[in-house]
């Protein structure tokens, strides 16, 4: 077992190293010219200025030298300095991460709390109205474009019915809570500032529903399918033959086995929520990593793009590692 985990770990480290190379090459060999994107036409036409600017950002060195420098800095936890914000990329990421973390976590909770019971009920009452409702919800969740769903929600509940607050994390005139964790809900609760708490919570409702939609659909479908699968197993028939009450059969016999695939899916889904918030954040003016990534990509801010893609890739690798290991723990046959 420990040998298996060790080999997975080594593989993950190798992959992470390869990922740095890919990101570096991607950012440095593509046709897009950061000079044009950053300086604008007027400054870019001044040759001396451009040369100076290139030297300043190390863009005049040969490629491999730049990669070695990149790796060295990386080992010191230095992701470079963002060209557009002029601040260390790591600091930028630290500032923007809490907003995304808060939004993604709420959306994740929402999709679990709604998706799992919905999937269970759909499987128990197959072909009933609740099964059809579950199928409808998951199909629409999976099939509607996030950015459009966000617009519809805003137009309906903010513009039309005026029962939801507009974009942003809190009201434009309100002050954010004193920062401890950067998560507004926790910070305001810690400070006992319940008005801010309510404000932040209200602002979370629409974006988290939008972000949760696709994941909710996926979780409902998976729960339903895996419930149906384990309901047909022999041990369920045995339990039924022994006269165990239906409630106990579902909770004690069917669910524990049915939820294993949901747990794996959940891990991946959370990683996807963290990274997939780009569109949702853009529409809801949510000051998180997604919007930061988008802005960096559009302005060809290479240090920022490299930093964020790298961190995200490492998080992805780490979650996959955890899934592999938990698989091995749940099912010893995997190791062999």
């Amino acid at each position: 077992m420990s040998r298996y985990i060790l080999s997975r770990l080594v593989l993950a480290v190798v992959m992470a190293l390869l990922a740095t190379l890919v990101i570096f090459l991607l950012a440095n060999t593509v046709p897009g010219d950061p000079v044009l994107a950053q300086l604008g036409d007027l400054a870019a036409s001044n040759k001396e200025f451009v040369a100076e600017w290139r030297a300043k950002w190390g863009l005049d060195l040969p490629l491999w030298q730049r990669y070695v420098i990149f790796l060295q800095q990386l080992l010191h936890g230095d992701l470079g300095i963002s060209i557009s914000s002029q601040r260390p990329v790591l600091q930028d990421i630290r500032d923007f991460a809490p907003a995304t973390l808060e939004l993604a976590s709420i959306a994740f909770l929402l999709s679990l709390v709604v998706g799992i019971p919905l999937g269970i009920m759909a499987a128990m009452r197959r072909d009933s109205w609740i099964d059809h409702l579950a199928r409808l919800i998951s199909l629409i969740g999976v099939s509607s474009p996030t950015f459009w769903l966000a617009f519809i929600m805003l137009a309906l509940f903010y513009g039309g019915l005026q029962i939801a607050p507009g974009p942003g994390r809190i009201d434009a005139i309100a002050l954010p809570p004193t920062s401890v964790t950067g998560l507004y809900l926790i910070d305001s609760a810690l400070g006992g500032d319940w008005d801010t708490f309510r404000d932040a919570a209200a602002h979370l409702v629409l974006p988290s529903i939008v972000l949760a939609a696709a994941t909710l659909g996926l979780i409902t479908r998976t729960t339903r399918a895996s419930m149906l699968e384990s309901m047909q197993q022999d041990y369920v028939r045995v339990a039924r033959a022994k006269g165990i009450r239906e409630r106990r059969i579902v909770i004690g016999h069917i669910l524990p086995n049915a939820l294993i695939p949901v747990v794996t899916l959940g891990g991946l889904a959370y990683a996807n929520l963290l990274t997939g918030a780009v569109l949702t954040e853009t529409i809801f003016s949510w000051p998180g990593l997604g919007r930061y990534t988008f802005r960096s990509a559009v302005t060809l801010d290479f240090p920022a793009i490299m930093g964020i893609t790298l961190i995200v890739a490492v998080v992805y690798l780490f979650i996959n590692l955890l899934i592999d290991i938990s698989y091995a723990l749940l099912d010893p046959r995997v190791v062999r």
């Binding site: 992959m15 990922a19 890919v22 990683a271 996807n272 990274t275 997939g276 780009v278 569109l279 990534t293 988008f294 990509a297 964020i308 893609t309 995200v312 890739a313 992805y316 690798l317 996959n320």
Partner: peptide, 9 residues
């Protein structure tokens, strides 16, 4: 190992 939308972006 890269999130698709971010890599594509």
């Amino acid at each position: 190992c890269f999130p698709p939308i971010i890599l594509a972006m």
